Amino acid sequence: MTALRRWTLQVVRRDGRRLRSLRISRGRLLVGAVGTIVVLFGLGFLGGLLAASRTESNRVVQLETELAQLRSETARMNELAGRLNEIETEFGLLQGAVTAGRPAESPAVNVVLRGRGEIRSRPAAETATPAWPLTQRGFITRHFGSRPADSREGHTGLDIAVPTGSYVRAIQAGQVEEAGEDPIYGKFVRIAHADGLTSLYGHNAWLFATTGDAVERLEVIALTGNTGRSSAPHLHLELARNGSLMDPLSLVADHSGPGNTGAPAERQPE
């Protein structure tokens, strides 16, 4: 029989008076080494889990902070929109008093903001005719059907240049079919109206309306911007009836903003 290999470990005190010998077999040595490796591996694994858990916890805290900031920003935007709505209402009343020589019964502009309750004012002769989608004059920079030299397709809507943050209004009462962000339209809102009419408002900086919302005629649904495929701040208005695109200028009732004389918006060369 082959003799088992053994190792002897001797421990000697510094003064040399005491000697202790420990006999270690090859099997015990291997078991100890494997055990040590397993323990070290386990400690490393637990350390990795702890680090991952700590990273995930930090990420959750960061997301919660960002969410709180977004909620705070939304609240500030709603507050600002409400204040601007009050200013426009007061301006409409003042304008009516100046032009007619008596207090106006209703302002020229009917602005509705989501979450502000009932409409503050409504023109007495309001009809279902699609209205101008902005509360200011703006400049038409590109017409429906226009086609750049490098494109084979005509323009699908009407581009109206206005400063970033201008009010975008629903041209007619309806229900929001879709509100979100698109690579081309940027932040957009699409509304379904009566008689198969749909309207799309693109390149916005901020959306007030969400999918499924019921909106009133002239309700503020967004703030203009420069998102999506856009080279400057403007509103892209796109109309379709039963899926067929149509010229917005053939339907919108008023091409002027509040405080204007009612003249059509100026049109720039394309």
Rank of each mutant, 00 (worst) to 15 (best):
T2G: 00
A3I: 07
R5L: 10
T8F: 04
L9N: 04
L9F: 11
Q10W: 05
V11I: 14
R13I: 01
R14D: 15
G16P: 04
L19W: 10
S25K: 00
R28Q: 14
L30M: 13
G32H: 08
T36P: 00
V38K: 04
V38Q: 07
V38W: 08
L40S: 13
F41P: 00
F41D: 11
G44S: 12
F45P: 00
L50S: 14
V61I: 14
T74P: 00
A75C: 02
R76E: 14
L80V: 11
G82A: 08
L84N: 07
L84D: 06
F91Y: 13
Q95V: 12
V98A: 13
A100H: 12
G101Q: 09
R102Y: 11
A104W: 01
A104Y: 05
E105L: 12
S106V: 09
P107T: 08
V112I: 12
G117M: 06
E118W: 04
A125P: 00
E126P: 00
A128D: 15
T129R: 12
R137T: 08
F139N: 09
I140Q: 01
T141S: 11
G157Y: 01
I160K: 00
I160Q: 02
V162G: 04
Y167M: 10
V168F: 06
I171G: 01
I171C: 05
Q172T: 07
Q175C: 01
Q175F: 03
E177G: 03
D182Y: 07
D182W: 08
Y185H: 10
A192G: 08
A194D: 15
L197S: 04
H203S: 10
H203Y: 12
A205E: 11
F208N: 00
A209I: 08
T210L: 04
T210M: 03
T211D: 04
D213Y: 05
A214E: 14
R217F: 02
L218I: 00
I221S: 04
T227S: 15
H236M: 03
E238K: 13
M246D: 05
D254R: 14
S256Y: 11
N260K: 02
Q268W: 07
